[in-house]
Structure formats: structure tokens, C-alpha cells
Nucleic acid binder design. Structure first.
Length: 450
DNA sequence: TTAGGGTTAG
């Protein structure tokens, strides 16, 4: 268009900027920004809003704010764009500060504003807070739209509260949103994640035009419920209807492959990825493969794959560390942990579980203890329940039953029945009746949790 | 024309 000498106008720039945001093409976005400044359209509200949104989507909230701040006139889209930028980065103080300023500016808050906050909560894993917004929205007399429902259903499926999910389903039926594809897929996910496979299945079968996401929702749902046969059946049915799987399909089905007795299915999928294009850029996918081989005890396959990867993150390392740990190769696991730290990849609480359990399976008592004690000072990770579980197991396996018992007594969490059982098992193995009986008594005293 | 959403690994 430019080559033909046609000048972009106040309609062209927002559309192209939106595309930049969707593709995270910051380079082209900045180029457009320079071109806008030279075009005389730099004060157009639509153009400015689109610039704010583009920078926010590309993760450049400061640049987004620079544009936003200088805008002489702001509308609800401007505010929503900048709030969304901060919320998606988890910068909550800034997001809420702006929400307050938006209220003071007499710009009316609309459903998109609410959905932005709810979506931010969802991304941060605050599913309860996301759900808590629904009654607030309704209190303002605003009707939920499909986006609000999808977020609400997503939160229900993560927490596993089918009752609230059903209420949203009812709301969708009453408001004619049940035919919306996204709502349908979110409903399938909600029911299947809440282990109500019957409802998930009937919704799926009643969907006439099934998109890739519909199939993925179903496969992920059954996979999540450990139903390999059905998940695999849907996978094959999907391919037979001419729909090609994408990386989400593969990532959904791989964890199940590790759990079935032979690795045939997992290898088949690995082969599929190698022979079909379009998968190489998804780290998530390669991590799932490393994890599958690790969990299946094929540690040399996992290592081979790991070596072939150009990009690795903490999940790649954690999967391999976990694999070596399960094989009783604690020293190798610790070497990998050291390597990841040297590479500047920060471990998180799941990495620590893998490392500590590797120590426990290989009898590396002092190594495990040192790592546990230095977890928060060295890596900034506060010990969680599962780390204490690892320590009880570590001492228990080594026959240091008094120290295992001390961990349970001192830990700032309510010990689970399984943890008492771990200690009792260790006492039995090492012939310690005193601590064993004490633990058994504690286990029997436990009140059932509500 | 510009803002929010569904399937996703350790």
C-alpha cells in the first residue's frame, strides 16, 4: 500500500497496530509509531488507543504508559488497554491504582474493565478472586457476556467446583449464550475437569461443528481424569475427521502416555511430531516429551532429547532432575541442579521438590538437608508443605526417625494422613516401635477435614 | 478502526 503511494489513515493504523500486538511484533509496532508521529495522526484517539494496546500486548507497559499519559483525551478503551497491560504482567498495585484513577476520571467502568481484572486474576492463578468478581458485576446491574462466563467457568474448572459451574451453565442457557463456541468449550472443560465426564461428553456430542479447540478440550479433560482409552479414541477420531492436532493436543495427551504400561503410544506421538512440521518452536511440547520419557523410566531417551534442545527452562531441568531422582541417580540430579543454576535458570518450588526427593531416594541426607535449609535464602523459595513431606521421607528412609518426627512436629502446616503413613512405614522398616506407635496414635487422632 | 475470553507441560 505504501509502495503504491497510498497514505495510511486513522483507520489503517489501528488495524495494523492490532495485528502487531497479536503477533507480538514490537519491532514493526515501533516502526509504525514513528510513521504515525510523522503523519499528523499522532493525536487521534483511535490511533493512540491502538498504540497503547500494542505496547501493552508486547509486554512494554512503560512504553504503553508513555503514550497513555500524554493523551489529551482518554476514553474507556484507553483505560482498559493500559489496565490490561499492567494486569497481564501481574503488576497489581499499578493496575488497581489505574482502576481507581479511572473511577475518579468519570470514565464509566464497563464489562470489559471487569473482565480485564477477572482475566488478570485468572492468569495469576487467583481463581477465587476471579469468581468473586461475578457477584460484583451483577450488583452493578451488568449482565455477563460470553467472556465473563468463559473466565468464570475456567476458574470453576481449576478449583473443581462443579456447583458454581452449573449455575453459570444455567445462566448461559437463560441468556442464549450456550451456543457460543468459547462458552461451549469452557463448559466441556469445566465438566471434565470436575470429573463429570457424562455431562462433558453429552455437550461434546451435541456440538455439531467441532473445532480443534473443542477436540482439545475433550482430550485434555479425559486425559486429566486418567482416561487413556477414551482420550486416545478421541485423538484418533479427531484425525479421522481431517483435523490436524496442534501442540496443545499433543501436550494434553502426552502425560497419559507416561502412565500407560508400554511406551508405544508416547513414541508414536514423538514420531508424529518429528515427521509433521510446525511443532519445533513450542518449548512446552518438548518439555512434555522430556517429562514423559523421564516418568516412564526411559532416562537415556529423556537425556538425549534434553541434549538436542537449544532452549531449556526450569521445567526442562525439573523434568530431567525428577527422572534421575526416581532412578536413584541423586548425584546426577544434583549436578543438573547445579548446572541449571550456573546457566542462570532460577528454580521454583517444584524444582525443589524434585531435587529434595532425588536426595531422599539416593540417601543423600546432608545434601538434602543443606538444600532445604538454604531454600529461601539462596533461591528465594519459601518451604511449602510438599518440601516438608520430602524431608520426612528423606530422614525416614535413612532411618533417622527422631529427626523425621521432629520435622512433622515443627512444620507450620497440618500434617496429612499420608505423611503420618510415611513415617509409620519408615518406623516399621527400621523396627522403631516407639515413634511408630506415637505416629499411629497421631494418625488416629486426626479429625476428618471438611 | 482501538480494550477483555476458551484447549496447555514440570
Amino acid at each position: 500500500m505504501l509502495k503504491m503511494g497510498i497514505k495510511p489513515d486513522n483507520f489503517t493504523y489501528p488495524s495494523v497496530l492490532k495485528a502487531c500486538g497479536d503477533e507480538f511484533d514490537l519491532g514493526f509496532g515501533r516502526e509504525l509509531h514513528r510513521s504515525i508521529d510523522a503523519s499528523g495522526l499522532e493525536w487521534n484517539l483511535f490511533v493512540q488507543n491502538a498504540l497503547v494496546a500494542m505496547y501493552a500486548k508486547c509486554g512494554e507497559v512503560e512504553l504503553a504508559y508513555d503514550v497513555f499519559e500524554k493523551m489529551p483525551e482518554k476514553d474507556v478503551v484507553s483505560w482498559n488497554s493500559i489496565i490490561s497491560g499492567y494486569a497481564s504482567k501481574g503488576m497489581w498495585p499499578q493496575a488497581f491504582d489505574l482502576l481507581g484513577k479511572m473511577r475518579n476520571s468519570n470514565t464509566p467502568i464497563n464489562l470489559v474493565t471487569w473482565n480485564t481484572i477477572a482475566g488478570g486474576y485468572f492468569q495469576a492463578g487467583n481463581y477465587k478472586d476471579a469468581l468473586g468478581l461475578i457477584p460484583q458485576i451483577r450488583k452493578h446491574g451488568i449482565h455477563l457476556d460470553s467472556v465473563a462466563m468463559v473466565i468464570g467457568l475456567g476458574a470453576c474448572s481449576r478449583i473443581g467446583i462443579v456447583k458454581l459451574g452449573k449455575e453459570i451453565h444455567g445462566y448461559a442457557l437463560r441468556n442464549g449464550c450456550d451456543g457460543n463456541e468459547s462458552v461451549k468449550n469452557a463448559l466441556i472443560t469445566m465438566y471434565s475437569r470436575c470429573k463429570d465426564l457424562r455431562h462433558a461428553y453429552s455437550l461434546f456430542r451435541s456440538t455439531e461443528i467441532k473445532s480443534l479447540v473443542t477436540w482439545n478440550s475433550m482430550i485434555a479433560g479425559y486425559s486429566h481424569s486418567d482416561r487413556y482409552e477414551e482420550a486416545s479414541f478421541f485423538f484418533r477420531e479427531m484425525i479421522s475427521t481431517g483435523i490436524q492436532p496442534n501442540y496443545v493436543t499433543i501436550v494434553s495427551i502426552l502425560p497419559l502416555c507416561a502412565r500407560v504400561a508400554n511406551l508405544h503410544h508416547g513414541k508414536e506421538i514423538h514420531c508424529y511430531i518429528m515427521t509433521h512440521g510446525g511443532f519445533k518452536d513450542y518449548l512446552l511440547l518438548w518439555n512434555s516429551l522430556v517429562d514423559m520419557y523421564s516418568k516412564s523410566g526411559k532416562i537415556s531417551e529423556a537425556q538425549k532429547l534434553f541434549n538436542s534442545m537449544n532452549e531449556k527452562d526450569k521445567v526442562t531441568y525439573t523434568s530431567l532432575i525428577d527422572g534421575y531422582g526416581m532412578q536413584g541417580e541423586g548425584q546426577i540430579a544434583l549436578k543438573l541442579f547445579e548446572e541449571m543454576n550456573n546457566c542462570g535458570i532460577k528454580p521454583d518450588h517444584i524444582t525443589m521438590v524434585a531435587v529434595l526427593s532425588a536426595c531422599s531416594h539416593s540417601g543423600l541426607v546432608s545434601e538434602g538437608q543443606i538444600l532445604f535449609e538454604k531454600m529461601s535464602s539462596l533461591y528465594g523459595i519459601n518451604p511449602r508443605m510438599e518440601h516438608f513431606d520430602c524431608m520426612v521421607d528423606l530422614f525416614g528412609r535413612a532411618g533417622l526417625l527422631k529427626r523425621a518426627a521432629d520435622v512433622i512436629t515443627m512444620m507450620p502446616f497440618r500434617p496429612s494422613a499420608a505423611l503420618w503413613a510415611t513415617l509409620i512405614g519408615a518406623c516399621r522398616k527400621h523396627g522403631n516401635t516407639d515413634i511408630g506407635e506415637w505416629a499411629a496414635k497421631k494418625l488416629l487422632e486426626m479429625k476428618p477435614e471438611n
